[in-house]
Amino acid sequence: MPSTQRSISRRQVLSLATGGTALVAAPGLFSGAAFAQEKYPSRPIKLIAPWPAGGSSDGVMRAFADSASKTLGVPVIIENKPGVGGTLGAAAMVGAAPDGYTLTQLPLGIYRLPHMQKMPFDPVADLTHIVCLTGYTFGIACTADAPFKTLKDMVAYAKANPGQLEYGHTGTGTTPHLAIEEFSEKAGIRLNPVPFKGSAEIMQAILGGHIRMMSGTTEFAPHVQSGKLRLLATLGSQRNKAFPDVPTVKESGWDTISESPFGIGGPKGMDPAVVKVLHDAFKKTLDDAKVQETLDKFFQPVIYMNSADYQAYGERTFKAEKATIERLGLAKKG
């Protein structure tokens, strides 16, 4: 058949299919490629940071987002959802489309709070664990004019003034809160906890003289270095390399260790191929000099886990947190 006739036949077919309106079909219109699925990603990705803007967590998440955007070829946009101990991101995954366009940070609190109060999500069944990237370093800091200079001094002061020494933390049930409650129980003291929505708010309060002590992430570091705050102890298994002269809580005499890996997750039921694209892009951020600079700024180590290992970590941690909450007598009723 001559090419002109082939062209006319194509027009006739399309004319019939469109109620008589002639369309000119481009070559390959009906090829398999024309019906292929949309390439991922093809539009901006939302990444929830469940903390206020301006804090250390927000800064780290923005560094990861900016770096991943370069690899993914689309913007990764941070949305701050502070409150409820950093669990609002995980809660937002319930009912979200598992298409890879809505993601969240997965802080340790998501495995803990469901044991303490009714939550709208199950951290194992309702989430896809994509990649673990880093973790927090926690410490206990006080104002420079506080009437104690060491952790042992603080314990002695708290015993002499039960319930009179207040400390700020990042929300009921978060790691900075429970670590101090566990330490207080072992030290035989009673402190007055004051919850905040995030590290940025805590820093404003302690630098403004509204609280005398805090338990939180290393956002306190520059203020310790400048002499505005005093670091009493860190909560890791080893001393922080930035503060080699500051003992851990365990070294000070109380067996309390608190370390907190975190990464990126999404809704349940995500396509494994999409998970791999995201995993590879965020893993690559760990080689980005700007990301490493941000992690160093907030004294956060690289803690990498692939998707399978991260999912297994989530399952183990969910069980371990249940035991901790029950031991501290904080389990929800009913």
Rank of each mutant, 00 (worst) to 15 (best):
Q204H: 11
G109I: 03
A34C: 09
K152E: 06
K70G: 07
G89C: 05
I189R: 02
A289E: 03
F196M: 07
G334W: 04
G59C: 10
L328S: 10
L127C: 08
R62I: 09
S69Y: 04
Y167S: 14
A68L: 12
G227R: 07
S31H: 13
T128G: 10
I130A: 06
I202H: 01
V194I: 12
R239P: 01
I8E: 11
T87K: 05
V24Q: 03
G209Q: 08
G85S: 10
L113T: 07
G198L: 09
L330P: 09
V274C: 09
N192T: 05
I130S: 09
G135S: 06
P114C: 11
T128F: 13
L330V: 12
K297M: 10
F262C: 08
Q5H: 09
K322N: 15
I78H: 04
V246W: 04
L72T: 00
P82W: 13
G139Q: 01
L295A: 01
P147I: 07
K290G: 05
L151Q: 03
V94H: 06
D145E: 11
A33T: 10
D145L: 10
P123F: 12
F282R: 00
G55N: 11
Q238P: 02
K118H: 12
G329Q: 15
I257L: 04
L127W: 06
I303G: 02
E259H: 06
